[in-house]
Amino acid sequence: MFKDLDPILHSQLRLAVMSLLIGLKEAEFTYIKEKTKSTAGNLSVQIQKLKDAGYITVEKQFKDNYPLTTCKITSQGIKAFEQYVKALQQYLHVK
């Protein structure tokens, strides 16, 4: 039924990550984990998938000896997100 919906985005956690990042310039891994109420392991896997699709960039740094992962949405990601929302609206017949 939802064959036109981008399979990368049509996953609850990946969509949640993208929805958070669309309104922010960048966000730390811990922030995304807290807001999406997900586990670190699952979130890492989904973030990697979004990164592989070119929808987000992931920057890994060290701050005070702790790893710090920052995610940022790419222009390709914004485009995909907008198309996904458009496809949803078509399903729901919203103009």
Binding site: F2, P7, H10, Q12, R14, N42
Partner: peptide, 11 residues
């Protein structure tokens, strides 16, 4: 939140 793909457009 899980890696759930079977959810509706409304959701």
């Amino acid at each position: 939140m899980q890696d759930n793909t079977g959810f509706s457009p409304q959701e």
